[in-house]
């Protein structure tokens, strides 16, 4: 996968998450969420700097089924998937350093 952020929806989600050989950090976001916008550039930086993890995002407005499946009740919500399964869930916007620390075990 090219380094960048992949947009996932109901159709692509299971394929991409299931077939990834590295952990995937999925950002559940929406256009109307201010804190989601704040962390977007941080995730872009992490995507280009970290080789050990892929970054993807799911627009909850367009894919409410995915939000429901992972019981999202607050965004931004970041879920790290390992071997296709959710391994860690983080809620709320955080600065880059704190975020890297939280996902350190997957890098």
């Amino acid at each position: 996968m090219a380094k960048g952020i992949t947009d996932l929806d109901m159709n692509s989600f299971d394929d991409v998450i299931g077939s990834s050989d590295t952990p995937v950090l999925v950002d559940f976001w929406a256009e109307w969420c201010g804190p989601c916008k704040m962390i977007a550039p941080i995730l872009e930086e992490i995507a280009s700097e970290q080789d050990g993890i892929k970054i993807a995002k799911v627009n909850v407005d367009e894919s409410p089924d995915l939000a429901r499946r992972y019981e999202i009740m607050s965004i931004p919500a970041l879920i790290v998937f390992e071997n296709g399964e959710p391994a860690k869930k983080l809620i709320g916007a955080k600065p880059k350093g704190a975020l890297l620390e939280e996902i350190g075990e997957f890098l």
């Binding site: 109307w32 804190p35 009740m73 607050s74 965004i75 931004p76 709320g92």
Partner: peptide
């Protein structure tokens, strides 16, 4: 917080 309790109506 984030599990039904929220400080951001717009977001959640």
């Amino acid at each position: 917080l984030g599990h039904g309790l929220s400080t951001c109506a717009t977001c959640d």
